[in-house]
Design a binder for these strands. Sequence first.
RNA 1: GCCGCUAUGAUGGAAUAGGUAGACAUAGCAGACUUAAAAUCUGCCUGGGGCAACUCAGUACCGGUUCGAGCCCGGUUAGCGGCACCA
Length: 830
Amino acid sequence: MNYDFANIEAKWQKIWEEKKLYAAQDGGEKEKFYALVEFPYPSAAGLHVGHPRPYTAMDIIARKKRMAGMNVLFPMGYDAFGLPTENFAIKNHIHPRIVTENNIKNFRRQLKALGYSFDWDREINTTDPKYFKWTQWIFLQLYKNGLAYKAKMPVNWCTSCKCVLANEEVVEGVCERCGAPVVRKEKSQWMLRITKYADRLIDDLEGLDFIDRVKAQQTNWIGRSHGAEVKFRSTLGDEILVYTTRPDTLFGATYMVLSPEHPLVAKWMDRLNNVPEIKAYQAAAAAKSDLERTELNKEKTGVKLDGVMGINPVNGKEIPIFISDYVLSTYGTGAIMAVPAHDDRDWEFAKAFGCEIVEVVAGGNVQEAAFTLKDDTGIMVNSGFLNGLTVKEAIPVIIKWLSEQGIGEPKTNFKLRDWVFSRQRYWGEPIPIIHCPKCGEVPMKEADLPLLLPDVESYEPTDDGESPLSAITDWVNVKCPCCGGDAKRETDTMPQWAGSSWYYLRYMDPHNDEALASKEMLEYWSPVDWYNGGMEHTTLHLLYSRFWHKFLYDIGVVPTKEPYAKRTSHGMILGENPHYVGNFEKQEDKDAMIAKYGSDALRPAVKMSKSLGNVVNPDDVIREYGADTMRLYVMFIGDFEKAATWSPKAVKGCKRFLDRVWAMAENVSDMETEYSKANTSLMHKTIKKVTEDIDNLKPNTAIAALMTLINQIDKTCNRAELKTVLQLLSPFAPHICDEIWEQKGYEGICSVSAWPQYSEEKCKDSEINIAVQVNGKMRGTVLMDADLSDEQVVANVVADEKISRFLAKQGGSIVKTIVVKNKLVNLIVK
RNA sequence: GCCGCUAUGAUGGAAUAGGUAGACAUAGCAGACUUAAAAUCUGCCUGGGGCAACUCAGUACCGGUUCGAGCCCGGUUAGCGGCACCA
């Protein structure tokens, strides 16, 4: 009865591989379709159950498109540089290259065991010199175009990884990867000028088929705001440039605030009267970690600069100047005009420091709270020539006035910062730059790429913030490619995000030695038609790769402005929470759990983790139920976009379903070539449903439709129907379908057979249950022929015994009827 | 605080464009088969009332639009995710 999934799956995986059944063709008549999933980081732990969810979903889409006659590119690879491998290597004294090789072997085995239709001939590995040669090449192009530069600046330093982090890698003041506190450190770092692309990274989202939350998050992260830069003066004669999004409130600026690091503070220092106080504040601000700065954001602190005043350019008023860490040195000009009446933060600060609050937009009570409305309900007051205008009208007027006076101009600012691109670690792409005492920074010659990592004994990170590579003198010391004199290599390496920023291009032409990919292949395969990946990469990998792609477009390497035409995202797979208080009967046990685990104890499902012991290993599931069941279950688990909880019990339901399909097939022995009359409309409806659901990324309801179909036809299924069932099920559970297909003697191989067609005409039923409402309430159904005229439908309904009885009881007469064709009748009775 | 999202049985979730709420599955209950268990098969499975035909209520809460609202509009509550002193 039960089918032998282990042998069947091994058999078909071997056949697919030997026949290269799913290899993409580099050209041809068929329409191309490039389906992409995020390649994994090959960790020592192996594949997590989270991986198969997106992989299976895209495999289903790839398989269905292939069956529908498209030339599908569905590749896989490994994003293998990175810290966990390096840390594992250090701990176990194994070279990271060996660790990586072993991990990849394990990942490949697991991916193959799931029966994915990847084109394995295109597999890539970011740590392969043949691959990272081109990562380095792209870096050189960025460098030559002024988009890679070295700068000394405060950077995020992870105290545990002993390495700098990009802004995108710092989450709530701690390291995204290890959770250790991040501190600010002044260091010279390689930077990539992603800010140059800020506008295009927002504007070009418009034409893309990305899910809205991805667009919203990227737009938010880039953080574009429109306003003006305005020149204030100080009583000491210096110009103080501020940025504001509310130039309309200029008359309400009653003090100014500089960031503690602002250069004017140092310049003024010897003319100020409270230097010790100022210096103490600066020192305290500098010592704060990001975490402290955000945690302590309730109370406003600051110091007034005693001995200097600002001058408001619109009214000539002298106003005090403070330093405070609520003004950031890294945003805008690092200095603000404070309008306490109309900005919450300024208001709080003004209350704390007793500054004047002047209302310039009517509508609130500015002594009670800041009035921050920006819409056109507010009317300007106390604002000279702006009085009487709405906020909306005032903004262009004041901006025009400022530019005419030469004291201000419109300005757009972004929250996005340039990308900190160097890491002080061993296991990454070496940066192909040489530092020469005579010539300065010299890029390596492209012909000399790849620049390999030296083989070393120790790759421990250093406490002083130098890369481990700096200790390898044979490697570090080189001749300058420019003057031939003694020079040194750059010893920092690239971040993990480098290799993944362009990997989708390499799949198009993975073995090319002359270029990252040939023009023809880039032209043929670009763009990626459908890219699915995690939301956690929205402001990291996804943004970075869009940036690199746009740059490559600008220098003529790639043919499209955007890398990915469509982006979707899957929900996480969670594990059952062993600490969930719902599991405890006694109140005191619950209370103890809540005291111990906090709000986590209130969640029935949480992220899987080793410490909770709720991790599910795909190998175990495959061993017990088979890959087809695993695939089916991760698709059936729930709405693809939402988080779902792994339920060991529910897996069984999917196995049962496959057993039923197997059993049903065993009983089919006729030689029918057409659907039976009784099953025709159901067959066509199911083809339609499965086809559309796959295209709309609704695998859960596609599977439900197949289950419904089997529930209905398993006693009567004929040979023609079985064929269609196998084809519809094949993308989800390819092994069992190919096996039954072969055993039943259908032609060819099921998983590359032609996708079944449906006709709208045949989806229709000849008889339909019409829903009947009286005054909008359901009162029953009446079975009748389809496509009757409205009059006939109403006549049938009124003639129905049950309905007529109800109407008689109800009294009154029918004053109106609403008929929805083949669906419903609503009788309005009064 | 800002941005985005969600709320449906015991549980995961269905419900194309406003038209039969709870498809499909899990768990549970009852029965068949079995020495027994597992597996399998059949039936029940939102709540209240009724022997029953039937009937009343029901998609977080309050209100609205509509012949008709889980779906649209206004408000509220709770939760999730992202950003967060960004001027």
